[in-house]
């Protein structure tokens, strides 16, 4: 277990402020935040690269606040991989074992084992400069894992990769986590990633942790304007998707949502509040999704209004409309409305 108590760090232009976190053994913990929030610095402080000004860090009840990085047994993978360019993939992966008293043969065996696990066995003789982003990332993860760290810190491991590669690697991270059972702290910008990988997550802003919880909780009950704004998705459902005739039909409870993203099985669905039309009468259009519901609440959100429409499933739909349309439609709490959105506005992951 890793326990962070009131950690602060002053870097001149930037403060890490009073960060407290508890991460359980074997947990896959996500840290989300906008750019410049201090996510990398938080990881670096956990790894021991920066020494905290105040506060304590405990790893398995041992106080590691004043211990240098090499004795912490915490692995770190930076967002830009930082593979040593003058070493081959094999030498990169084996780098850490050379500082331990391990025989050459044992190093070779372990490197091959990790290369197999990360799927870079064919690349062992190559130099990092010739690898693709995904291959570099795999190598960097293997280099950290070979030390059998108690905690693995991943700084935006997927954000520099194209969607397909990112998706595959995300799946592999999940597998690796279940194989090695290493505690992982994974930094990301992407809520989707947090949802798919994390058992719990923290949201960071301006050097502070603003909310901690399961992705579901944080998403459903943002505790601040910032979190709500940053996650910004609005409508999220879980369901079973069936692909039929070039269209996906997702059962999210009592209704079926149609999506243009062809993904089947157990999925998450999100629809941005701005993409949903609201009307007092049913409209005939090319949009594939249309539901009848009741207005559960109306919230003033500055330039727009957020209307919650209950269509008879667990969570209401959130719809954003301008004040002008609100006045024209003469909407009231409890009033009956129709919501309509296109299949292409339904994001499936």
């Amino acid at each position: 277990m890793i326990r962070i108590e009131n950690l602060s760090k002053d870097l001149g232009e930037f403060f890490l402020r009073d960060v407290s976190l508890e991460i359980n053994d074997g947990e896959y913990f996500m840290v989300l935040g906008p750019t410049g929030a201090g996510k990398t610095i938080l990881l670096e402080t956990i790894a021991g690269i920066y020494h905290a000004d105040s506060g304590r860090i405990f790893l398995d009840e041992q106080d590691i606040t004043d211990i240098p990085p090499r004795e912490r047994n915490i692995g770190m993978v930076y967002q830009d991989y930082t593979l040593f360019p003058f070493l081959t993939v094999e030498e990169n992966i084996g780098f850490g074992l050379k500082t331990r008293k391990v025989t050459k043969r044992e190093i070779k065996r372990r490197v091959e084992e990790l290369a197999n696990l990360m799927g870079v066995s064919q690349l062992l003789h190559r130099y990092p400069g010739t690898l693709s982003g995904g291959e570099q990332q795999r190598t960097a993860i293997a280099r950290a894992l070979i030390m059998e760290p108690k905690v693995l810190l991943l700084d935006e491991p997927l954000s520099a990769l194209d969607t397909q590669t990112a998706e595959r690697l995300r799946q592999e991270l999940k597998n690796i986590h279940s194989i090695t059972n290493t505690t992982i702290i994974h930094v990301t910008h992407s809520f989707e990633e947090a949802f798919l990988l994390g058992s719990r997550m923290a949201v960071m802003n301006k050097g502070e942790i603003v909310q901690v919880g399961t992705p579901n909780d944080v998403f459903r009950k943002p505790e601040s304007e910032f979190v709500a704004e940053f996650l910004g998705v609005g409508n999220l459902f879980q369901g079973k998707s069936r692909v039929d005739n070039g269209i996906a039909c997702i059962d999210v409870g009592d209704i079926n949502i149609v999506s243009a993203t062809l993904k089947s099985g157990s999925v998450h669905v999100s629809i941005r509040p701005e993409d949903i039309l609201v009307s007092t009468k049913q409209i005939v259009s090319s949009a594939r999704n249309s539901f009848k519901g009741k207005i559960a609440s109306i919230v003033d959100a500055g330039t727009t209004l957020k209307i919650a429409v209950d269509v008879g499933i667990d969570n209401p739909f959130i719809v954003a409309i301008t004040k002008q349309s609100f006045d024209e439609l003469n909407l009231k709490t409890g009033g009956e409305v129709y919501i309509t959105f296109k299949a292409s506005a339904v994001h499936v992951f």
Partner: peptide
């Protein structure tokens, strides 16, 4: 040279000098 190269080496068991 990005100091992160040294940082990574430190997490891989090196002293600052190493």
């Amino acid at each position: 040279i990005n100091p992160r190269y040294e940082h990574v080496a430190e997490t891989l068991g090196c002293t600052k000098a190493q």
